[in-house]
């Protein structure tokens, strides 16, 4: 039982990271109907910026998060402006291929930057290796911090989308671009900001993931696990992304514990296949019929 709770907690912490990456997918998908395959690589880049912010500039942990998020927001907006906007309106899959290309470029560029390269780095956090003992269960503070910070970010994002003018404009333009345009919302600029926001969220995810996988140029592949998370929740749904991420994280942790070796790596994909066969557009996905 104690072990089960521990697994559950570890799975939830891992699931939070998936959820944040999935959140990035969903934000961009809702805005531009593009699936951003480079989301994992944005996360990787964010972690590297955090690393440099900590070691080169010597910022404290909290400032590092803000710094990385800010830099990544600019990177995200640049990517939207330079490569995504020219192909907007082309078939969805061409745009997906572009983001795959962007992912390759980001991964390659990181290995060329002096001081980053192909090495593996550790990002120091104030939580370190501390553990809490609650009734026999050993809980890493790190995991609690990841869960807490994810919850805080979700709350901030919720308030932002619910109450700020920009957040409402983002919702409007992702629901119906044409109508939003008629209402005087600068849809293109809003799309650019959404890319920035999603890249900032990715940076946040990268920083949370860094203590688990360390920082290296291939850490972005975790993004491939976040796809199932986004799909399980339904690709157009923000709460769905969070729930999907948690489901994938927990299932993976339990599969690693109770199923034979090898199932841990494919558990996420098995779950996504099952969900897709039962509900082709995810748990929270909207099902719409096309009018002829």
């Amino acid at each position: 039982m104690v072990q089960f709770v521990q697994m559950l907690l570890a799975g939830t912490a891992q699931g939070c990271v998936y959820a944040l990456v999935a959140l990035g997918f969903v934000l961009i998908y809702k805005a531009t109907e593009t699936v951003n395959f480079a989301q994992g690589d944005l996360m990787m880049l964010g972690a590297f910026f955090a690393l440099s912010g900590g070691t080169l500039i010597g910022l404290p942990y909290w400032a590092v998060i803000l710094f990385a998020a800010l830099v990544m927001a600019i990177v995200g907006m640049l990517i939207e402006r330079v490569v995504i906007r020219p192909v907007l309106g082309h078939p969805a899959f061409t745009v997906v291929m572009i983001t795959i290309g962007v992912g390759y470029v980001l991964r390659g560029v990181v290995t060329m930057v002096p001081g980053w390269g192909t090495e593996t780095y550790a990002l120091s956090t104030p939580f370190g290796q501390k553990v809490l003992r609650v009734g026999g269960a050993v809980i890493a503070v790190q995991e609690l911090a990841v869960i807490g910070m994810t919850a805080a970010l979700c709350l901030v994002l919720y308030l932002f989308f619910r109450y700020s003018k920009l957040g409402v404009a983002m919702q409007a333009s992702s629901q119906n671009q044409l109508a939003a345009y008629y209402m005087g919302i600068p849809v293109r600029r809003v799309n650019m900001l959404i890319w920035g926001l999603s890249a900032a969220v990715a940076a946040f995810a990268g920083i949370l993931l860094a203590p688990v996988t360390f920082v290296h140029s291939n850490m972005g592949f975790i993004g491939l696990k976040a796809f199932p998370a986004a799909v399980v929740g339904g690709f157009g749904s923000v709460p769905g992304a969070i729930v999907g991420g948690l489901i994938i994280g927990v299932v993976e942790a339990l599969a690693g514990r109770y199923l034979p070796e090898g199932f841990k790596d494919v558990a996420a994909y098995v779950v996504v296949l099952i969900v897709l066969f039962v509900r082709p557009s995810g748990i929270f996905g909207e099902t719409t019929m096309k009018k002829v």
């Binding site: 490569v83 020219p86 192909v87 082309h90 061409t94 745009v95 291929m97 572009i98 795959i100 290309g101 962007v102 992912g103 390759y104 470029v105 980001l106 991964r107 390659g108 560029v109 990181v110 290995t111 060329m112 390269g117 192909t118 140029s217």
Partner: peptide
Amino acid sequence: ATSGVQAVVFGLVLVGFII
């Protein structure tokens, strides 16, 4: 790193072609 150059060129070619 050669692998890095390869990834960058591959990505740029892909993006460039599609645009």
